[in-house]
């Protein structure tokens, strides 16, 4: 329902009275409205849908999610489905 992709904010400016930003998707730069994330800083990641930043990506919680998954690896594997050839 809602394709939204994280990108890095590399510039913040005003346009027609709206807070806007340039967001970098590993080399492709899109112009994005930042009105809904007023506290965002350059260097932070915004999750962007249809040209609007809908939230600031929480980088600590992203790392937390990944580390939870890494701990599953320590679990003594009873039967491992071999999906990696």
């Amino acid at each position: 329902m809602c394709l939204a992709v994280p990108g890095k904010v590399i510039d913040i400016f005003k346009e027609n009275g709206l807070s806007m930003g340039r967001v970098d998707y590993s080399g492709t730069i899109a112009k994005v409205c930042l009105e809904y994330v007023p506290e965002i800083q350059i260097g932070q990641y915004a999750i962007v849908h249809a040209g609007f930043a809908i939230t600031i990506l929480n980088e600590e919680l992203a790392e937390y999610t990944l580390s939870t998954w890494e701990q599953y690896d320590k679990l003594k594997d009873k039967q491992s489905p071999d999906i990696l050839s």
């Binding site: 990108g7 590993s26 080399g27 492709t28 962007v48």
Partner: peptide, 13 residues
């Protein structure tokens, strides 16, 4: 695939 091309494809679906 180049990273910036992948970035554009992800954003535009």
């Amino acid at each position: 695939i180049h990273e910036n091309v992948r970035g554009a494809c992800e954003v535009l679906g």
